[in-house]
Design a protein around this nucleic acid. Sequence first.
DNA 1: TACTTTACAGACAAGTCTGTCTGTTTATGA
DNA 2: TCATAAACAGACAGACTTGTCTGTAAAGTA
Lengths: 194, 194
Amino acid sequence: MMKKPKARDRILETAARLFHERGYSEVGINEIIEKAETAKATFYQHFPSKQSLCAAWLEAVHQRSDLQREGILQGPGTAIEKIDAYFEGLGSFLRENDFRGCPYSNTGAVIDEECACLHQKIEEHKIAIRNFFRHLAGQFAHSERRAREVGDALFLLFSGATVEAQNLRSLWPVEAARRSAREICEKESATAST
Amino acid sequence: MMKKPKARDRILETAARLFHERGYSEVGINEIIEKAETAKATFYQHFPSKQSLCAAWLEAVHQRSDLQREGILQGPGTAIEKIDAYFEGLGSFLRENDFRGCPYSNTGAVIDEECACLHQKIEEHKIAIRNFFRHLAGQFAHSERRAREVGDALFLLFSGATVEAQNLRSLWPVEAARRSAREICEKESATAST
DNA sequence: TACTTTACAGACAAGTCTGTCTGTTTATGA
DNA sequence: TCATAAACAGACAGACTTGTCTGTAAAGTA
């Protein structure tokens, strides 16, 4: 028989699900503790505020997504295949999550300027993804500058696909971005070096 | 001396500003009517609900942005120059609006599945932008299929630039998308036709 | 002038929100 | 066994939310 996880983990897991499904601002503490089957006092024993729960959630998401990118980087295949795999992973993610896109972008849309710690987490996550693409682009681009340019283009295609798949509740943006990304990579690696 | 606009216009104008600055879900009716200097009864005389105000706002945004694209299409310049102008317009828009990005994406992130009429407006707006890019791409692409593919890629770059400029509160995503878009267009129009 | 539309002020209902507090019960580990 | 820590239930405060309602005042029109 499965042992019931500790209260903090239940809270974090429940909050992660609800925040992602409906958005940070649309989910209240009361619903979280009810679904997590904890008392309100227990909640505030583990998290000083709703905002700190949000920070913990984003932190956990970042760690998981970092691991995924690390796994792709360590795994087999060419750089172009790895980029393709990352787009494929986005498609699976969206299919499994009812087309809810990036938790960071969705959270950034509703928090105000004062939440500096949340904004920082958003920034870190985005830069990590951009660097992932820049790094891979560096393996076939013909210069450092080209690696940055191609990497940034891939990052923006990825980001655009994520947000539009959510808006249109469809996978075609992901497929279109994937195709375009592959084309950019192939053209870059085929071009004669200067 | 400027005559005070009618109540409905004041409400819509104020709501537009506040919704865009802070997000639909973060702004209440009370604040809107206070800043618009109207009575609550007056508000509910013009809008049956907050959601219908949101719909009216998105409708107004769509009309303005449609006019802008129409103006670019009717104006002088090549298709590639027009695409470039649209990215330049995005940069100006973000600079003038404190890096708050697409009202549609930001609203879509916080409304639930039941708001069908809002989701429909989001979809219409996004498809209009995609078609704008597909149409322009059709003027230099080598086939209908290529026009769709190139147009979709430009659309996703544009969308990615918008959301990441907001997340990172910086203009570099717009500049990167612009450069990449130009490159895609130039490569497409330079390629020998089959 | 008389009628009608529009807008006004603001109380009120019924519910939500975050966060605090008191006190009790259950686990865990020495 | 006993002490410490963790979780429990749930009342409460104070502020906020959307939306309704009553009644009054002003503005435009016939």
